[in-house]
Design a protein around this nucleic acid. Structure first.
Lengths: 119, 119
DNA sequence: TAAATATATGAACAACTGTTCATATATTTA
DNA sequence: TAAATATATGAACAGTTGTTCATATATTTA
């Protein structure tokens, strides 16, 4: 039951100037997604704990499981996500993999995040 | 088929000193969850776009839908999440609600996040 | 006060996420 | 080289999330 005016914009509350202006400086789709992906990665309490622990010193998977309270398998899965997001790196020493933070962005983000939490 | 030593810790790779030390300075469960919740809130590209738009100026729901490309209903749902996390506030003017950022933590977090993205 | 407008909200549903369990891989040790 | 150890990975499953669609609410206008 299509009407003749189907394609007419039915929104009336738009402030055209504002929309035009904001649109011109809008974040692009890919950047928005990339930014969302980082935050998504930080948006899990297990991963928060792993990163927080690694802020103190490098740790092996076993140690990370012990301090975070998660199973070694769960930790391993989460470490892969952190690796993919370039948040952690590791070095091997025999059978043991020692994980550490890849850079200090995490620390800065945590500090800012905590500032919001404790507003 | 329970063994007599079932409760014995079967993990052998733990570095006790490290674990003890890191545990002593560990983030607590509630804080970890609260921190994860903020990041989780920032971990969606629609919400990223909404916040990014609001970094420029206050906007009504219609405008936010226009600049973000999401439906008004979707925007409204997302704004509720942002409100609950105390990231945005609004003022009413007649039928129209104007949303704006509640404080500047978002801007700082975005800047840091983007720095990581463009590492 | 009825209609129109701007926004909010609940239900439903598909897509995604985190954990567990079983198994695989890599390294060392016996 | 076989067994043990440390970690990784895939499948499965429950829980969560974001959107849509229908409907409700609040405000203004006729």
């Amino acid at each position: 039951m299509k009407t003749e005016f189907e394609d007419r914009c039915d929104v009336q509350c738009i402030h055209e100037e504002n929309v035009k202006e904001v649109r011109a400086n809008m974040i692009n789709e890919d950047t928005a997604r990339a930014l969302a992906d980082i935050f998504k990665t930080l948006g899990d309490s297990t991963r928060i704990k792993l990163l927080f622990a690694l802020m103190q010193k490098e740790l092996c998977v076993c140690d990370l499981a012990a301090v975070s309270g998660a199973s070694e398998s769960a930790v391993s899965h989460q470490l892969r996500i952190l690796r993919n997001q370039k948040l952690v790196k590791y070095r091997r020493e025999g059978k043991i993999l020692y994980y550490s933070l890849l850079d200090d962005h995490v620390q800065t983000l945590f500090t800012q995040g905590l500032e919001h939490v404790n507003e």
